[in-house]
Write a protein that binds this DNA or RNA. Structure first.
Lengths: 147, 147
DNA sequence: TATTGTTATACTCTATAACTATA
DNA sequence: TATAGTTATAGAGTATAACAATA
């Protein structure tokens, strides 16, 4: 096996490789629900913040309006969410009963996935690492949609 | 700002968000060299392992043969690398003089990028984190190309 | 038979720009 | 003027399948 140590100290490289492995695992786990990772994150965010708008959701998840539109349309066409006009231009998002059931299944799948990918870390270690990673991006400008 | 704490403990989510921010920074930094992150990683790997083949390179970087082909073709058409037949089917990869110069510039850009993204961590912390992340994916099966 | 490299193609997610409608 | 939502389009990276040539 060739020497890899060039990338050993490159944090950006390690983060990218890990992200690929982890997201592939999650995508596989969600596939039986016909859900993609981005769609699952939308379900989680709506469940926890019922009534928020598409724009708020996008800012929360770092997804641009232009990319949020088809995501939401897809979930609505599956009757997982509803849109209630609140403003004439804004629409409040809610989970339907089917949406809640789907959310519950996605949550279970996601927790099993976390266990599969990070089970080698103790609970305290996991939380510490999550916070450490969070600080490295959450402090950023976070524009997301100023175009 | 809506409550985000749903994702606070989800390591997969934190890794993905961080990866996006970090890779966007690297892509911007490499753009003036007309290099994409994947191409830069190829330059780094060839520089450190001169003479390796495309397949070896792919296994090292987790890039499939099918996706490696156009990457290598692009770098060769820019005269950054050469291919010397070694086998009739395998080809040894080397950096040209232009390729070495490009590698040097890419390395400087990447180091500045690491400093920009992870400068808030002490050197020891950075290495510890890099090793922690590495362990979470490097232990995996690592098939990459058994199809 | 297994491996190397190539081509074609599809998918996920992101990004930008332009547009309508509303506040 | 600024915001909400939509559409169209392009880009980077990944994945699979099939193929030719070689070992």
């Amino acid at each position: 096996m060739p020497a890899m140590h060039i990338f050993d100290g490159l944090l950006g490289y390690q983060i990218r490789r890990l992200s690929l492995v982890v997201m592939a695992d999650l995508a596989d786990a969600l596939a039986p629900l016909s859900l993609r990772p981005a769609e699952a994150s939308v379900l989680f965010a709506i469940e926890a913040n019922s009534g928020l708008t598409q724009s708020e959701l996008g800012r929360m998840l770092g997804i641009k309006r232009a990319n949020m539109a088809p995501l939401i349309a897809g979930l609505e066409s599956r009757a997982a969410i509803t849109r209630d006009a609140v403003d004439g231009r804004s629409q409040a998002l809610h989970l339907t009963e089917e949406g809640k059931a789907l959310h519950a299944r996605a949550l279970a799948v996601t927790q099993a996935h976390e266990e599969r990918c990070f089970g080698s870390l103790a609970n305290g270690e996991r939380l510490r690492l999550a916070r450490e990673l969070n600080q490295l991006w959450a402090c950023r400008g976070e524009s997301v949609d100023e175009g």
